[in-house]
Design a protein around this nucleic acid. Structure first.
Lengths: 130, 130
DNA sequence: CTAGGTGCAAATTTTTTGCACATGC
DNA sequence: GCATGTGCAAAAAATTTGCACCTAG
């Protein structure tokens, strides 16, 4: 579990499916994607492995869209865009905001908290929907 | 439904409970809060009214913490802080980030989207937990 | 009377979990 | 053999919904 090399075949496949797309998929999507290729796969296993990825820092949750949690294996800090009509989740270039460690420090000093990360999401209409 | 004046007594009470706190409560919390005062209240009504508030712009969803949606009646644009240990949600002063309309315009031009709003959340440990 | 609001409980939906079995080292 | 991973189905948990009633205007 410490290194990706030790992943089981199914865990590897689940990670690969997640990492292969920028759709920020749900567990269900990953499951449907892999079913043809791995007929024995079960949805519970997908959920369990996505949990593992979050724990070990290989994936994060982007939010919950229409009641389903959506995941991202791209661990580079970057903002997201959610289309309010079709609910697509897009990656935005990281340059579009960069609060940086300075802001973290300021918050820590002035608000008496310790800050480890942040997330930023924009909402509106995507190119297809507007 | 158009103006707060026309709210039913229960809708009014639900809104008041939500607006009275910075805890960013869940539907459950609002329900428990009001039960002593409104014995006839049902949880479904709380859910229905919170939905109404979101639709008419009197409240918004802050996110889902431990599987429960959390609400905020403070519609001023402001960032949130979520403690990763106790899962408290705190308001941060609006000044700590202000992407502003300029960033919106830039995103619209360069990413072919239309941007209407954004949300920013910091994560770390609150004063009690660190 | 009409439209909107509500209680209640059932239904829906997503996610988690228990347990027995499988697999790799 | 042991620890980890998995299938399967049941359970859990949150939210939504259908329906009958009720209330204000």
């Amino acid at each position: 579990m410490q290194s990706k090399r030790n992943f089981s075949a199914k865990r590897e496949a689940i990670y690969a499916a997640l990492a292969s797309t920028t759709l920020h998929p749900s567990a269900e999507w990953v499951y449907e994607q892999l079913k043809p290729e791995l007929p024995g796969l079960s949805l519970g296993t997908v959920y369990r492995n996505l949990s593992v990825f979050k724990e070990i820092g290989l994936a994060r949750s982007v939010g919950i869209i229409n009641g389903q949690e959506r995941f991202d294996a791209n661990m580079m800090q970057h903002p997201h865009f959610i289309c309010q009509k079709c609910f697509r989740i897009l990656d935005l270039p990281a340059g579009y905001y960069s609060p940086g460690k300075n802001l973290y420090k300021m918050l820590e000093r002035e608000c008496d908290i310790s800050v480890e990360m942040h997330s930023m999401t924009f909402y509106g209409l995507c190119s297809r929907c507007r």
